[in-house]
Structure formats: C-alpha cells, structure tokens
Design a binder for these strands. Structure first.
Length: 271
DNA sequence: CTATAAACCTGCTGGC
DNA sequence: TGCCAGCAGGTTTATA
C-alpha cells in the first residue's frame, strides 16, 4: 500500500498533532510488527519523552523525541497509523498502540502484519547510507540517475523500485512513472538515452507530487491518520487497467509479471 | 551481477 | 451456495 505519497500524507498530518505530545505507555498486540524490542523496553526508553519532530525517509516514518533513539515505522502493505483522542473502539486489526499523556493515542492497524516498528540510533547507518536519495530532494538529479542507470543491465522497473538506488517508489508509482516517461518497464538501464533519463526523472517527480496533492492512492487499504482514503486512485493511467484503453492512444493496456509483480504498460506508447 | 521464488500474513474476488 | 486458486501497495533471504 503505502508508497512515498501515502507516507508523505501521513507524516504531514502527524506533524500537526504529534509535536509536544509526551509518550506515556505502549501496547504490542502482535510481536512480529515490533520484533526487536518489548513494549516494556520501549516504555523505559521513551516514556516521559516529548515528540519534537516527525519526518519521512523513503517509506519510513520517523518520530524524533529529542535525546532518544528514533521511533521508526514502516507500514508494509496494509499498515495504517490512526490518530485518536482516546482508544478508538474499532480498529479492526490493532497491532500496536502508543498512548500519550493527556489521552491521545497513535494506533497501528494492519491486516497483514508486514508493518515494522523499530528503535533506531540517531544517524542510523541504514537510513543514511543504504537507502538511496529522496526522489523529491536535491540528490536526485539527472547526473545521479544517469550514473546508476548506465552501468546496469537490470530492467528499468527493477532499478527504480530498488530502495537502495532511489527511495519511495513502489509498484503503483513505478508503473505510472514509466508510462508517463513512455519507457517500457523491461528496458535495460544501460540502454536508456539522455532523453529517456531526463523524461524519467521529470516523470517521477511529477507523478509523486501529483499523488501527494491528492493525499495518496487508495486501492483498498490506505487511509490517512483520520481514517480517510486518498483520491489518486481516480487518476491512475495504467496501474490496474489491463484490458482498458490507453488514455493517450486507446491501445489496449497489457499486463505481465516482472520480478514477481504486475507490470502494466501501453505497448504503443512505451517502447 | 541479475533474476526468480519463497517467506512473512490476511482478506477478497472470480471461476467452476 | 461453496470451495479453492490467485492476487494484493513491501522487504528480505535463499537459490540458480
């Protein structure tokens, strides 16, 4: 579910409510979502600390409470972070909860339990070194993109999905972006020319920014912190549209499997 | 180096 | 109506 635009939607809302909140108690209902620390341990480390800042790195949500390790949350496929003034009666698949002094709550609701919550040392090596640059940040320019593409024989789709190379794209936006750039998902990285690279970069930025402007894509599971869906699903060009006409040329959109994931493309527009 | 499959989970849909 | 196969926004690890 949550790719960069959905996570961005969530952190922008968290920024409105979390700073100033003081951690009090934690509940863990499914060990798998927080494998490295117990809730008792988490309380010992964070209780009494005040949230200072919330930010995003790729698809990770990071809560900074000052002189403490970062609370780092990844929503996996079906994770939702829900905000409540008290414990809401009905999060269907409650896996984890953080209670704040004063009665506010942050809940993790996740059907499939692929979400992960961890404590990370400030300046964690994974976030700073292993994860690629932000596609909407300064490091993601044409020179960088050319550098990572021209030396690789991998398909362009697997390259832009690789979080170590550029972070935040998932299957929906990889498909949408390649359509916008008129590039076939199976093209080899090293095969792309200067025009392709430049169009690809612009398409990634444009596609992600448009989706953020629409508060993310809700196929079925994504919700913001108040439980509301996004609207970008009404603007998808190829994802989930096998058999339908291409919005540009009316050619029938096709689907095939690449790296175990569905790829949608227009055989006319994308070469 | 690159690609594929499986594993981790649950729920929904479509075909028979 | 009921059952089962297949599929789903992600990531990591193993295998070829």
């Amino acid at each position: 579910m949550p790719e960069l635009p959905e996570v961005e939607t969530v952190i922008r809302q968290l920024r409105e409510v979390l700073p100033g909140e003081r951690f009090k108690e934690f509940r863990l209902y499914r060990k798998a979502v927080m494998p490295d620390v117990t809730s008792t341990n988490l309380r010992n480390i964070l209780a009494g600390k005040v949230v200072e800042r919330v930010f995003r790195r790729g698809k990770f949500i990071i809560i900074d409470a000052g002189e403490a390790p970062y609370l780092c949350i990844h929503l996996g496929m079906t994770g939702r972070l829900l905000w409540g003034t008290r414990s809401p009666c009905n999060p269907r698949h409650l896996r984890w909860k953080s209670e704040f002094q004063g009665g506010n709550c942050l809940l993790l609701d996740d059907i499939r339990c692929f979400s992960r919550i961890r404590l990370l040392p400030i300046e964690d090596s994974y976030l700073s070194k292993r994860l690629g640059p932000e596609p909407l940040g300064n490091g993601f320019d044409v020179d960088y993109l050319r550098e990572i593409l021209q030396s690789s024989r991998r398909t362009i789709k697997s390259l832009i999905l690789d979080q170590n190379l550029v972070c935040g794209l998932g299957n929906i936006y990889a498909n949408e972006t390649l359509f916008a750039a008129r590039i076939h998902p199976q093209r080899q990285g090293s095969d792309l020319g200067e025009e392709d690279i430049s169009r690809l970069r612009a398409s990634i930025v444009k596609t992600l920014e448009a989706a953020i402007g629409r508060s993310g894509t809700t196929i079925s599971d994504f919700r913001d912190i108040y439980g509301r869906p996004g609207t970008n699903q009404n603007h998808l060009t190829v994802y989930g549209r096998e058999g339908e006409p291409c919005p540009m040329c009316q050619t029938t959109i096709r689907r095939f499997s690449l790296g175990g994931r569905s790829s949608f493309f227009c055989p006319q527009c994308q070469r």
